[in-house]
Amino acid sequence: MEKIYKDARAALEGVVFDGMTIMAGGFGLCGIPENLIAALREIGVKDLTVISNNCGVDDFGLGILLKNRQIKKMVSSYVGENKEFERQYLSGELELEFNPQGTLAERIRAGGAGIPGFYTKTGVGTMIAEGKEHKEFSGETYILETGLVADLSIVKAWKGDPQGNLVYRKTARNFNPMMATAGKVTIAEVEEIVPLGSLNPDCIHTPGIYVHRLIKGEFEKRIEQRTVRQRETA
């Protein structure tokens, strides 16, 4: 099975449709599938439900889909860097399903593992628990959270081989490995495609069985917030 595609748009062909659910890896702007996101904007697919820790910034990452009114609903943990997100949410244009960050990560991991739900103490007694099943274990109250799956997962890795085995680099690993397991179709973009057999099997983070399509991307790698101090003079 040929998994390598010439570019992001070609990799998305025949996969995307209006109203679909997409998982997008990354944390802030670290490890985001920026080429695939840009291709989604070009294709113009709309009414998307996007599962991602955050929604990029106003002019980069998932923020460009939000600005283009292609996202109907976000399932997220943190959205504080995006003014357009705030505007759309407060005006009722955007649906939001807020999750504690650890709960979001476990919902994705559970979905990829075929686990329909799990109980957690996180959120008990808060708005997070409203409308959810409560159950006691050893005298403690827990709430039921459901696993998450998506029609499409888009992830970004450091290296990949022709079979789709992936290696992530440092903190760019973040949500990417678990999202790769939870998509009905998973497309990965990588900085380098290496020959088959050149990756140490013990160092592979995502086995190729989870990856359906693969592209080599070009990356801008923006810094989300740059904080500097004035140069000290002698």
Results as ranks from 00 to 15, higher is better:
L65E: 07
Y119I: 11
A113G: 07
R169K: 06
I193L: 11
P201S: 12
Y78T: 08
N174C: 11
F27G: 12
K170W: 12
K170A: 13
V79E: 07
A113D: 14
V16E: 01
V194S: 08
E191R: 14
I71L: 06
P195T: 04
G102K: 01
K46G: 00
S76T: 12
K132H: 14
Y210V: 07
E145H: 01
I115A: 09
L94A: 02
T146R: 05
G131L: 05
V194I: 15
V211C: 10
A105I: 05
S198T: 15
R231L: 13
I22N: 03
I22A: 06
I115F: 09
E136D: 14
E140F: 02
G31Y: 04
R69M: 00
G26F: 05
F219R: 11
E191D: 15
A180S: 12
A11H: 08
E218K: 11
F17V: 02
Q163H: 08
M74I: 11
K121D: 13
T171S: 06
K216T: 03
E42Y: 01
F98L: 10
L65G: 00
M178W: 04
L36P: 06
T186M: 05
T120V: 15
I193R: 01
E13A: 04
A172C: 14
R41W: 08
Q101G: 15
F17E: 14
G14C: 08
K3L: 02
D18I: 09
S77H: 12
L196S: 12
I223Y: 02
R9I: 07
G61F: 09
K216S: 03
M20Y: 04
K46W: 04
G114I: 13
V167W: 00
G183D: 00
E220S: 13
E34K: 00
S153R: 07
A113W: 09
G25P: 10
A234T: 14
V228K: 13
G111D: 07
A110F: 01
F137A: 09
V45S: 03
V75M: 13
I4Y: 05
Y168V: 03
M23F: 13
N53Y: 03
K72T: 03
E224W: 00
L62D: 08
E13F: 02
A8P: 09
N35R: 11
V185G: 06
P207N: 11
A24L: 03
C30A: 12
N174H: 15
Q225I: 08
T103M: 06
V50P: 08
K83W: 04
I204C: 06
Y89P: 00
G139C: 13
Q230D: 11
V194K: 09
N174V: 00
E136Y: 12
N174Y: 10
T146P: 01
R169F: 08
Q225L: 03
I209R: 15
L96A: 00
